[in-house]
């Protein structure tokens, strides 16, 4: 079980997380996370403090993003159907034992940026085919 919180401490959570990090370079994640989003998949996620300070935006037809309304810290990426939530890696109190596992939208990676580690990589087209095959549209919806 890991815990996490925003910068100002208004919102805190606990979560049972995977030990791996998913990195996303899609333009929505880039805009939201200021560069590169790193998410850690959870099996269980509970807000333990400050639920009324939690902002949630529907950033596309299938995903929501949670953040603290007081300090702007990014907390999670959630897909209500089929129902999974990734916490923002930066919000975790303890990141020990985490390793990058996959990079999504690698063809949209900011120029000059590369992880030192080798991971599974998926292009935008491969991500769309995998996550939203019926949609067929770019994830850059907003």
């Amino acid at each position: 079980m890991r815990t996490g919180q925003c910068l100002c401490g208004a919102v805190a959570y606990r979560a049972e997380t995977a030990d791996t990090v998913s990195v996303c370079y899609c333009k929505m994640c880039q805009r939201w996370a200021s560069g590169v989003f790193m998410g850690v998949m959870t099996e269980r996620f509970d807000v333990t403090e400050g639920a009324d300070h939690l902002g949630v935006i529907s950033s596309s037809d299938w995903a929501e993003r949670g953040f603290c309304k007081m300090c702007g810290s990014n907390l999670f990426y959630r897909v209500p159907e089929p129902g999974y939530l990734s916490v923002a890696m930066g919000s975790l109190d303890d990141t020990s034992g985490l390793t990058p596992r996959v990079q999504y939208y690698v063809d949209k990676r900011p120029e000059g940026f590369a992880l030192a580690a080798e991971t599974k990589e998926m292009t935008e087209a491969e991500c769309i085919a995998f996550f939203a095959p019926e949609e067929g549209d770019s994830h850059d919806q907003v």
Binding site: C6, L7, V23, C29, W32, A33, S34, G35, V36, F37, M38, G39, F67, C71, G72, S73, N74, L75, A88, M89, G90, S91, P110, G112, F113
Partner: peptide, 20 residues
């Protein structure tokens, strides 16, 4: 050009990697 900040506050604020 851009840079990255690894400080705990930037990591919390962005949730991922702050590129500035």
């Amino acid at each position: 050009s851009y840079g990255a900040c690894h400080c705990g506050m930037c990591r919390k604020f962005s949730g991922g990697i702050e590129l500035g």
